[in-house]
Write a protein that binds this DNA or RNA. Structure first.
Length: 881
DNA sequence: GCATTGACGTAC
DNA sequence: GACGTACGTCAATGCA
């Protein structure tokens, strides 16, 4: 087994200076990326390793800076043209399926040294180090270690190295301690160059021995040695590798190249030749993906089950998947459980309809299995594990103990942009494995219960096995870059969301029934009126028919176009309203129709027959910024702005004996903007706890009277979203020129905000992503797009995502902390609506709980401005606002 | 017949 | 085209 360690940093520099004048059409320099890729390929082809790691320096200080503050001080900062290429190089390495290491506090050399020392234990007989720096020569003292010299394309062992350098590998550090290294600011002994150093080491062997005999050394050399003794020893200390860098990963086998990603990278960089060589059709699945059978044991005999129990009780990492009768966890019946441990997958049949060849395991046995899994020293892995936890808990098989690892959420953190984090897609992309299709196993009209047990085992076992394989792939990256976010925020939140979804929220059926009636009646009235004004009947719900009527039959001049015809949206109807009565009626019709179909009717149908409550599903991996989303039904967009809409809200009620307590962060996104930008005026406004929009109005208009406040509010929101003069002016009914003037005066009064926006865009351009205060990232591949619209959209994301995402991070932290401390209260968390939490609490606890809630939410993050939370209680969801 | 797309509107 | 993030409904269109 051969292991190849690539010293990424040395090659980035080498490539950058070796090739000149390469850039893509957007003007991004690409010379280092191109050169680096070639070097990487060259090493790989020359060595043909079984494992490969590409190691980079981590940004920020290292332990060397502590012992020697001037360390690398004189080294010039890397040129801007090089820095902008680094994120692309990292992305390219990952897309190639190679392990990329970058350990905070250590340099690439230390990491390479550490892995070299551990390689033999990991089963590698030969270690090849590809580098253009000579200090790694010191590692050649170990047997089975070689250097690869890319420029000469040859492998150096200790003897060859000695020939080339004139010193043995064991002497490299001492040699460099004498000679020094200007680029790393290793001082060395001034006045001693390579020749003297070689001669001294040949004669005395080591630096220590040289100094032991320093009195014997005559002339200038001796004098210099005496004079710079401290520098020599300090230099050596700096050169010594730290060979116990903490690494939590020893699997260096390369994965499969991510061809679509490579295609995208090469396209973006303008590497036409490389792209064409990929032989990849856009949107076609990679040809490499194959369906391979996974060995699954059916645990329905006493022996097999006993063995499974033993494994389940002792393994450290286990993947689990449940098979059920419904995709909705709150109403699904458990049919079977699959488990993957190490290389083995298991299937436990529980409630299959056909048992001719195998048997269903009795509940008591399944309980034993769950008990074996319910221990705090287990890492329980699952794909969308919230689903499995809910199903199991509903079958009296709660698993409160294990630490969790959700591969779907891991995929989301690693790249939120991914179109799907579904197991099928991840298997194809990361493992080149084509999964058995659910619809092939469960034909339409049947459920998993009807599937025969051997087929079920193949399907379910594959799910668990692939999930475990994805865990093996994702875990190192998660631990390295998203440890806190994953383990301190997202995984604990899974358990909170389980509780919320299982509990659901009550609605007043009767009230919904009444609303249905009154809205339906009103809709008919409006419909009649529209037909009358139109002079004919037509389908008002069809924008197409409506446009034909308004702009052709009635001859009303069109206001705005969509890509398929004339627009009839609310802004158009609003513009027509003063002149045409029908526009007014249509607006009302649209509102009532929306309330009826999307809310009143849909909500009634989603009341769970068993609990009598509505159980939404909170999705943790949909929103690109880190927000949650809610579906089936979406309870995050229940109306609040119009009177009629609030009627729907009133239908949400607490359980008998309980009241609602709601808490919402006031202006959290603007506060975060103030924190992130550090703008003094904005910070001051919040410090004074005054109306922020009025303050802004005062700042840019010199007055905070209502109309100015309204415009200031629009500007404040515009800032959060990446404003454009055009849209702002249209919203405020002014000319684009006036809109621009408004933005200009805003930035004049809030220069810190302007600087922040510019910085966010520059950061994204440089790193290829935007990030929140807690390190959540969103990659922005379009940030350098040549298409201005696409590029500007990415720039707005670069500004907005850190703000919206930090807000999402903070409320998630608050949810976790509150959940953990709920025990003294009988309060239940029901909903999260981005900056608001809704609870139901026994009446008598409303007050103490409200105080607790406010304190917890306000202290969830310590920013440069206070977070303030408004709490209120009431007997329906409308009452709490 | 079922799936996808577009227009629209609700929330934060 | 033209300010961010979602989800759901309906009609029209696309595909078998």
């Amino acid at each position: 087994m051969k292991l190849l360690l690539v010293d990424g940093n040395s090659f980035i520099y080498k490539a950058f200076y070796a090739i000149r004048g390469l850039s893509n059409r957007a003007g991004l320099p690409t010379n280092a990326i191109y050169g680096f890729r070639n070097i990487l390929e060259k090493c790989h082809n020359a060595i043909e390793p079984d494992g490969i790691v590409v190691v980079f320096d981590a940004p920020g200080p290292t332990f060397r800076h502590e012992s020697y503050p001037q360390y690398k001080a004189q080294r010039q900062k890397a040129p801007e043209d090089l820095i902008s290429q680094i994120p692309w190089i990292h992305r390219l390495v990952e897309a190639q399926g190679l392990k990329r290491l970058c350990i905070e506090g250590f340099e690439a050399d230390d990491v390479i040294g550490t892995i070299t020392c551990q390689a033999q234990d990991a089963g590698y007989r030969e270690v090849y180090i590809a580098t253009s720096d000579k200090d790694l020569g010191q590692l050649l003292t170990k047997p089975g270690v070689f250097l690869y010299d890319t420029s000469k394309e040859r492998i150096l062992d200790a003897a060859a190295f000695h020939d080339k350098m004139g010193v043995t590998p064991a002497q490299v550090i001492d040699y460099l301690a004498l000679v020094g290294d200007a680029s790393d600011n290793i001082p060395g002994v001034k006045g001693i160059g390579p020749k003297s150093a070689q001669k001294l080491l040949e004669q005395y062997g080591t630096l220590d021995n040289i100094y032991a005999h320093v009195d014997e050394i005559s002339g200038a050399v001796g004098k210099r040695l005496q004079e710079f003794r401290d520098d020599a020893f300090l230099s050596r200390r700096l050169l010594e590798l730290h060979t116990s860098v903490p690494l939590d990963d020893s699997d260096f086998r390369p994965g499969v190249p991510n061809v679509p990603e490579l295609y995208e990278i090469y396209s973006e960089l303008g590497f036409q030749g490389l792209r064409d060589k990929l032989n990849y059709q856009v949107d076609a699945p990679p040809a490499a993906a194959v369906a391979t059978d996974i060995d699954v044991r059916i645990a329905d005999t006493a022996e097999a089950f006993a063995e499974l129990l033993h494994e389940a009780a002792t393994a450290a990492v286990i993947a689990i998947d449940t098979e059920t009768t419904s995709e909705h966890a709150v109403e699904a019946d458990l049919v079977g459980i699959s488990i993957a441990i190490g290389e083995q997958a298991w299937y436990v049949p529980i409630d299959h309809a056909h048992t001719d060849t195998h048997r269903n395991m009795p509940t008591a046995d399944v309980q034993k299995l769950i008990t074996a899994l319910d221990r705090s020293d287990l890492l329980l892995v699952g794909q969308n594990i919230k689903y499995d936890l809910i199903v199991l808990q509903r079958h009296d098989m709660a698993l409160p103990q294990p630490r969790l690892f959700d591969t779907m959420i891991a995929s989301y953190l690693l790249d939120a942009n991914r179109r799907s984090h579904g197991l099928d897609q991840l298997a194809v992309e990361f493992l080149s494995h084509e999964m058995i299709a659910f619809k092939d196993v469960v034909p339409k009209g049947s459920t998993f219960r009807d599937v025969d047990i051997p087929t079920a085992a193949r399907y379910a076992g594959e799910d668990a096995a692939i999930t475990l394989a994805l865990y093996n792939l994702f875990a190192p990256r998660i631990e390295q870059e998203y440890h806190e976010l994953f383990h301190a925020i997202e995984m604990p939140l899974v358990r909170v969301l389980c509780h919320m979804e299982m509990l659901g929220i009550a609605v007043d059926r009767e009230m919904l029934g009444n609303l249905h009636e009154s809205f339906t009646r009103r809709l008919h009235e409006l419909e009649e009126k529209i037909y009358e004004l139109a002079g004919e009947a037509f389908n008002i719900n069809s924008p197409k028919q409506l446009a034909t009527l308004l702009f052709e039959k009635m001859g009303i001049p069109p206001v705005k176009k969509t890509k398929t015809g004339y627009s009839t949206d609310v802004s158009v109807l609003e513009a027509l309203a003063p002149q045409y009565e029908i526009a007014n009626v249509l607006t009302q019709y649209r509102m009532v129709s929306k309330l009826l179909s999307t809310y009143v009717n849909a909500l009634s149908e989603l009341i769970n027959p068993w609990t009598g409550r509505i159980h939404t599903s909170f999705n943790q991996t949909v929103a690109n910024t880190g927000r949650l989303s809610s579906s089936d039904p979406n309870l995050q967009n229940i109306p609040i702005r119009t009177e009629e809409g609030r009627e729907v809200r009133k239908a949400f009620v607490p359980a008998p004996g309980f009241c609602f307590v709601a808490a919402d962060y006031s202006q959290i996104e603007l506060r975060i903007a103030a924190h992130l930008s550090g703008d003094e005026s904005m910070l001051k406004s919040f410090a004074e706890e005054k109306d922020i929009h009025a303050q802004t109005a005062d700042a840019i208009f010199g007055s905070s009277e209502p109309n100015y406040r309204r415009m200031a509010k629009a500007v404040n929101f515009g800032i959060l979203y990446g404003i454009s003069a055009f849209k702002l002016s249209r919203d405020l009914g002014m000319t684009p020129k006036e809109g621009q003037a408004l933005i200009d005066s805003y930035f004049l009064r809030y220069p810190g905000v302007k600087a922040y926006i510019d910085h966010q865009i520059a950061f994204a351009r440089e790193h290829g992503y935007a990030q929140t205060l807690y390190g959540r990232r969103r990659y922005l591949p379009d940030i350098n797009s040549r298409n201005r619209n696409i590029r500007e959209a990415a720039e707005r994301n670069a500004v907005n995502m850190p703000i919206q995402g930090t807000s999402a991070d903070i409320i998630k932290i608050a949810m976790n902390r509150i959940h953990q401390q709920l025990a003294p209260y009988q309060a239940r968390m029901l909903l999260q609506i981005h900056d608001e939490l809704l609870f139901e609490v026994p009446f008598e606890q409303a007050e103490p709980f409200s105080a607790f809630l406010q304190e917890q939410m306000e202290s969830a993050a310590q920013l440069k401005v206070r977070l303030t939370v408004t709490v209120s209680s009431g007997n329906n969801w409308n009452d709490v606002h």
